[in-house]
Design a protein around this nucleic acid. Sequence first.
DNA 1: CCGCCTCGAGTTCT
DNA 2: CTCGAGGCGG
Length: 660
Amino acid sequence: MSFNPAEEIEKLRKEIEHHNHLYYDLDDPVLSDTQYDQLYQKLKDLEARYPQFAAADSPTQKVGGKASTAFSPVVHRTPMMSLDNSYNAEDVRAWHERCAKMLSCPVFDMVLEAKIDGVSCSLTYTDGVLTTAASRGDGKTGEDITANVLTVKDIPHRIANAPAGILEIRGEIYLEKKDLAQLNEKQAAANQIIFANTRNAAAGSLRQKDPSVTMRRPLKFFAHSFGFGRINAGGFGDFIDDCRKWGFAVSPVRLRTSSIEEIIQFYQDFNDKRRTLPFDTDGLVIKVNSFDQQRILGNTAKSPRWAIAFKYPAEQATTTVKNVLFSVGRSGVITPVAQVEPVSCAGVVISNATLHNFDEIKRLGLRVGDKIILERAGEVIPKVVKVVQHLGQADIQPPVSCPACGRPVYKAEGEVGYYCVNPACPAQIKGRILHYASRAAMDIDGMGDAVVNELVNRRFVSNFADLYNLNFFHLLSLENFKEKKSQNLLDGLEASKKRPLSRLLFALGIAFVGAKTAEVLADHFHTLDALMNASIDELQTVPDVGTAVSQSVYDFFHDPAAKEQIELLRATGLNFTQPQKQMSSRILEGKTIVFTGEIEGMTRTQAEQLARQHGAKTSGSVSAKTTFVVAAKAAGGKLKKAQSLGVKIISAEEFFKMIQ
DNA sequence: CCGCCTCGAGTTCT
DNA sequence: CTCGAGGCGG
């Protein structure tokens, strides 16, 4: 194909605009400055050679083009170094020991502060007047961001009683969590970029070409380092006190001690507290206090030896997508799952992350081989946040055939999901059996993932009733099964026959019938036969049962295959009735309770059962209708929601006292 | 008909 | 835990 300058120019413009966007709006450049400059230069050359294709909206013509840098370089008087990181007590003790050795002194003062997640910035005051503000850049040379920094309200433009000449104060410019939420609301309303975190928002705000935009961002500053100048302080603690006198905010979390164990204790206690603070912190910073001792310890090529960051494990991590697989759930839904290069995130090693559906893949623009950021949503479920760098070639296509049974895949009109509609699909059978045996359903001890897998693969089991026809010899032939395990599983199966109707209903896996609806239905009809014979109208008289649920239940029990299954289960002696609810008291009648966190001595399900026995309603989510929330150890998002809604919060002890 | 409140379903790792 | 959607009250 011949060279087409118009096309080539257009392609370069698009590419450069994309990188401008990454750099200015997202503060997340993918290209190095050199790589960017090469692209930019290439476009400039082409535009010069083919002036007929010049355009006013080309990035080369715009003031904001990155190369025509709005922020001129500033060489730092002393380098702005980064800190060495540590993530555990051992590393911190080792650091302390190394310092002690180099200082020939086992006990020395240290200062601890919060490590606030923001953008570091160096402020130069000349005879007390703020003259230059610079970003860190590569540590040696930063960018001049004075115009933007002048709009930060926390930063004094003039300081009284400052030492004569040059004084350089360094610190962090950051955004509070609540301000990020507000900013993002505004951004969304204006159809602008949503910032992923406070750090990105702060950085993006400082990169604005127009300082009036920066001014509208509620940026804050706190001082944390000494850069240059003649000061009286002999130690870091005194210097920070001076900063306060000069009108700077400083870390709200501070500790001065000579005990490394006290610091480690503080680190552990602070982990819970830091989430309630108004700003994001990813850890603490430990510094040797005395400036003289700092001088003795000196620096490595990268960082000072007299300071170390004591970080908490990152909640986000960067890794690579190795492959995308498709899992088939018990209902036949096909879910894409990303297999990633194992990476440590929020304390665990992640190797899989759900992608939910194909819209999500499209939204992310994800390809196999891409570099991605993932996080544990609510510190639990790994989730792909975004693609950092496109390294993959081909787009990910939805599967044409089911990965488990090979039958063609269907996509319902207007729905996001793809389905395998083969009821005999082994993946669906496994899913259904696993659900049947699960804790909240029939609670069959000894029936986990591996056992179900083998039972289905070996064709011992293809439906619920088959489970009860398993004998000792079937089980003995399973991998790692001897007498003991086999007997345990048989006992587990036998015990499951006595479960109340509500659990059986849930276990059957009727669409729209979860644990809650199953219980409502069982309590209303008392026997499976009464439920099976109920008309759609009768079903709808039950609270919380509407058209969708009633239709689904009716259809399920009028399907010949399901009917046969029920009769087979009846023949094994399964319990088809719901016991009358026994009430311990009615003390909690009319109250709606939500449990959160780990309650000592019982599971959350047990606690909920207890509450219901005393007449309460229980729910899994907090709303204005919630009477109170029982918050135990390690309470999560529900506690937060309760606080924001002003819902009463009580402790587990208070709850137990109520029902005594 | 809209908006709030819930529930259901799928997902990860120890 | 999050997303999507059913149930229901206003």
